[in-house]
Amino acid sequence: MTDQRIHTDKAPEPVGAYPHARRVGDLLFLSGVGPRKPGTKQIPGVTLDEAGNITAYDVAEQTRSVIENVRIILEASGSSLEEVVDIQVFLTNMKADFKIFNEVYAETFASIGATRTTVEVGALPTPIAVEFKVIATVA
């Protein structure tokens, strides 16, 4: 059985001691993926004050960036968005963000038909509003 840890310089650097993904057999498990731009600490759609506190954010822009980062990791792992089977979504403000997030999510995933669970969390490790945890297949 294949067991491989995957890291790619094309995706944002992990914020902890973990790989971007791990392949076990024909399944690919992605670590939590946020919206940071690869090679930088820049978070699309986020405005921070001098103390690093979020003063404004755009959940649509962040969601699009997360999907792009997921695509990068999947392709570096020999998979693709079309092979996604399950997504766990973490939002920091379900009441304010779910409708907009869901519309952006549907642009990519409505036709793919992956299962999904969406939960609200009190905070994420960096000043972001959305993060995905993805399982996909590898042909």
Rank of each mutant, 00 (worst) to 15 (best):
T2S: 07
D3E: 06
I6S: 02
I6W: 12
I6M: 00
D9C: 00
K10G: 00
A11S: 10
P12H: 10
E13P: 02
P14E: 03
V15S: 10
V15C: 10
A17W: 10
Y18H: 13
R22S: 06
R23M: 09
L27R: 13
F29M: 11
F29Q: 02
S31M: 02
P35N: 05
K37L: 13
P38K: 07
K41N: 06
I43M: 01
E50H: 11
E50C: 00
A51T: 14
A51C: 06
G52F: 12
N53W: 12
I54A: 01
A56R: 05
V59T: 12
E61G: 09
R64K: 15
R64M: 04
S65T: 10
E68N: 13
N69S: 05
N69V: 08
R71H: 03
R71M: 03
I72E: 00
E75S: 11
S77H: 08
S77K: 06
G78H: 04
G78L: 14
S79V: 08
S80W: 04
S80F: 05
L81G: 03
L81T: 08
E82L: 00
E83I: 06
V85C: 02
D86C: 04
D86N: 12
T92A: 12
K95I: 09
A96H: 15
D97E: 13
F98P: 01
K99Y: 05
I100E: 15
I100S: 09
N102D: 15
E103Q: 13
V104G: 11
Y105W: 15
E107S: 09
A110E: 15
I112V: 14
I112S: 00
T115W: 02
T115P: 08
R116D: 03
T117F: 12
E120T: 11
V121I: 14
G122A: 09
A123K: 14
A123H: 06
A123P: 08
L124W: 11
I128A: 10
V130H: 03
F132A: 05
F132I: 10
F132V: 13
K133Y: 09
K133A: 09
I135Y: 00
I135L: 05
A136G: 08
T137M: 02
T137Q: 03
T137L: 04
T137P: 01
A139I: 07
